[in-house]
């Protein structure tokens, strides 16, 4: 099979897109031949970075004024009309999931969004994805080529792009960024409208507001939660320090907040914050239903509690039955040492 990767180089998320798709390709496309990576970008300044992190030896750069799906689709449609690529691979972000089905439509292929696994069979591509609100895993057979799929976020581990100094990267470039275009408003001059211009003729005004780095407990990726079992304010303060050392945000259960050992805006659970971190460590939390609902959406829950029978133990992924203070002190030490050695990216 021959596959092409499409990435959005206009976005600051480029590196994670590249590593995500690279991880997926390494897992499921070992036998496939990578044709090229198409990267849309807005500024020449980033070109070396984009090329260096292109997951394939061959890279097609397309410069345009900004991420604009209608222009990108028109360009891809023309560029790929006579290509014999069988599979287009898009990352699982907003851009990837809007471009893949529309491109498939235009190229007469078939598409699937949020794919977490693929395998190739005779005349078809077998794709797996979650359906029924993530309660079921379905298998689909795509039979119309080209197959345009976008990935399910977090389905495979990201894989950094290997640096191969001796391999010459093959780069070709197209520039469709009209001189008259600014980054904010696209202005059109003259009667001869270009294809890309026509594709976004509906836009009268454009403004982009960069996303503030998400902060606070609601958006935290890593949280440490103190429960009733910590017994006093000083211990909560200490956990606050530990959270800082671990790189986590501190949250508390209702008894802790209602004892004023931590401000109410740290309260997790009913009447408080519904957290959805990648990692949640609970310390001396018993796991009452009213609390648990606040951490239920965590990817990984690690419970530390002296009581093996506490409800939180059964509701966690990993549990340590021991004194939370001793365990966390050790953990801080391990992580600090690892940081000194440069073991982690923390």
């Amino acid at each position: 099979m021959k596959h092409t990767i499409v990435l959005n180089g206009c976005s600051e998320t480029f590196l994670s897109q590249a590593e995500e798709v690279n991880g997926f390709a390494a897992a499921y496309l070992k036998d496939s031949r990578a044709d090229k990576t198409i990267i849309f970008h807005c500024t020449d300044r980033h070109k070396p970075f984009l090329i260096a992190n292109s997951p394939t030896p061959s890279t097609q750069l397309i410069r345009l004024p900004r991420y604009q799906p209608e222009i990108i689709l028109r360009t891809l449609e023309q560029l790929e009309a006579s290509s014999n690529t069988e599979l287009y691979l898009f990352p699982g972000d907003f851009a990837g999931s809007e471009l893949s089905p529309r491109l498939a439509y235009r190229l007469g292929g078939s598409s699937l969004i949020a794919v977490n696994k693929i395998s190739r069979t005779e005349n078809a591509l077998t794709c797996h994805k979650a359906v029924y609100s993530n309660y079921m895993q379905a298998e689909f057979k795509l039979s119309e080529r080209p197959y345009c799929i976008s990935l399910a976020k977090g389905s495979t581990d990201p894989l950094p792009i290997a640096v191969e100094n001796d391999v010459e990267k093959d780069v070709s470039e197209i520039d469709i960024a009209n001189q008259e275009w600014s980054n904010t408003v696209l202005s059109f001059k003259g009667d001869q409208k270009s294809e890309p211009e026509k594709a976004c003729a509906h836009i009268v005004d454009y403004e982009f507001v960069k996303k503030e780095a998400a902060s606070g407990l609601e958006n935290a990726n890593y949280i440490l939660v103190a429960g009733r079992g910590v017994k006093m304010k000083e211990k909560v303060d200490k956990l606050h320090t530990i959270a800082g050392q671990l790189g986590a945000e501190l949250g508390v259960s209702r008894p802790v907040a209602m004892s004023a050992w931590a401000p109410l805006n740290k309260l997790i659970g009913v009447s408080g914050i519904m957290a959805k971190p990648q990692i949640c460590i609970t310390a001396a939390v018993s796991g009452a239903a009213a609390f648990y609902t606040g951490i239920e959406k965590s990817k990984l829950i690690i419970a530390i509690n002296t009581d093996r029978g506490a409800p939180i133990i059964r509701a966690s992924d990993l549990a340590i039955v021991d004194d939370y203070e001793k365990v966390l002190d050790e953990l801080v030490q391990i992580i600090t040492e690892a940081q000194c050695k440069g073991d982690t990216s923390l």
């Binding site: 959005n8 976005s11 600051e12 998320t13 991420y67 972000d93 907003f94 851009a95 836009i203 009268v204 005004d205 454009y206 403004e207 982009f208 507001v209 960069k210 996303k211």
Partner: peptide, 9 residues
């Protein structure tokens, strides 16, 4: 958008 908010007329 993936890294911000787009406001278009």
């Amino acid at each position: 958008a993936d890294d911000g908010l787009v406001i278009e007329t």
